[in-house]
Design a protein around this nucleic acid. Structure first.
Lengths: 234, 234
DNA sequence: AGGAAGTCGATTGTCGACAATATATAAAAT
DNA sequence: ATTTTATATATTGTCGACAATCGACTTCCT
């Protein structure tokens, strides 16, 4: 084997040959289904039939089955033996609980960040993104930057398990947000403006203020009419 | 069909015919494996081979596979594509994080219980059980009653999602406790004695004291030498 | 007509076999 | 001797088929 060929392998020049994605089918399928669920393309209560999905995606039932199992772990799907599988219905109670748990998680993160005096300057990045998105009326972009802000906040607390739990919870938050009736009355600028004070309080080491702000923040977001979400109570 | 036969069906007399258990194989297998893991019969790092397990339990690979997927959801097992599956190794960090998250959960439960003025009298039951077990030197019984106490505490907060998260977390706590070196130096009576003050504080509506006690409690339990747990770091 | 038993269709549960992949080992070439 | 290539083996990934179960509908008997 000559050196030139070796160099090609280690440093492709012209046509950059990216590694082809080699994720298991079950993961690809799970990702697709998850995406469909948290964007409300598959609404709560929708029954999932393995054979139908398998045929639709042109694969066998096995990976579909495993994908559904993954979503079950995510808490997005439930299985009733010999009965069927369906997107887990949402109750008002679950929405409430999701938000209160989220609040607990974020308060925990805040406390840890302050205890360890972590550098939170990176939080300004999503803050700026939110401000810009709000200025452009880009609702989608604002939502994304908001998620990035909060995920970053959790990550800064340097607690793997917390981040993991938060991620799982945030799946449902995404779902709920996609489900709830769009209210253009939402003031994007106000949402964006809520975040910088949190970063400031963190940089000042003001635990009390930071906790209060994050609590108010999640509480405010919770007060979307839950009734609009629960039209499919089977 | 005569009436006598019908009556037999509705009201079995002598040989009480209980409903036969009809849980899917995957669940039975998952339960067994989970039990083996949280009792440290299967130690962290142990590789799980589907074919071997299937043969050993005299079933096909499919339900074994699904059972392992369930345990993966529980966070007890990890899968590396085309590499293998193994009981998730434990790091000191994970042990620390498990306990800190537990503390957060229990503090949240305490706060909710006090906010809603829930009746916590039922907590005296496991308290008594712990006292009795301690008196008899029954370490096993004390551990069980302790778990019952804490699960009951979470349940009293009336928060499904929290209870669910706590249950998942407690799996790992069981595993860790089974793994750590038994120290007979533990004062059973002291452990049992730690709990009644919590109930008293709750009944008095003393939030500050209750939170402090539960925090001390979980903190104390965390201080088992983590080094003894991490002898299998692959 | 009413109720029990049987039948049918749909869906999940389980199985055995084959394909794809990764690791380790051995062989071969320079 | 070292690196490359080939091979072997173990394990997971995927597939198609069959069995078990459920629900609704039909049929039959009284």
């Amino acid at each position: 084997m000559s050196m030139t060929q070796a160099s090609v392998l280690t440093a492709p020049t012209a046509a950059d040959l990216e590694p082809i994605e080699q994720t298991p089918l079950r993961v690809q399928i799970a990702d697709r289904l998850r995406r469909a669920i948290i964007t409300a393309k598959l609404r709560p209560g929708t029954v999932l039939v393995e054979t139908a999905l398998a045929e639709q995606m042109n694969v066998s039932r096995a990976p579909v089955r495993e994908a559904i199992a993954i979503l079950e772990n995510d808490g997005l799907v439930e299985t009733l033996a010999y009965k069927g599988k369906r997107v887990k219905p949402l109750t008002v109670r679950e929405v409430e609980e999701t938000w209160s748990l989220r609040q607990t998680f974020e308060v925990m993160a805040i406390r840890r960040i302050l205890e360890r005096r972590a550098d939170v300057a990176s939080l300004w990045i999503p803050c700026r993104a939110m401000r810009d998105a709000a200025a452009l009326g880009d609702r989608e972009g604002l939502i994304l930057a908001d998620e990035q802000f909060h995920r970053m906040l959790i990550a800064l607390s340097d607690h793997h398990l917390l981040l993991q739990s938060w991620n799982a919870l945030y799946l449902r938050i995404n779902q709920i947000m996609a489900l709830r009736n769009r209210r253009d009355s939402d003031d994007l600028a106000e949402i964006a403006g809520n975040h910088p004070p949190i970063v400031e309080a963190l940089q000042l080491g003001d635990t009390r203020t930071a906790v209060r702000l994050i609590s108010d923040h999640t509480r405010a977001l919770r007060d979307f009419d839950p009734a609009s979400i629960v039209e499919w109570l089977g």
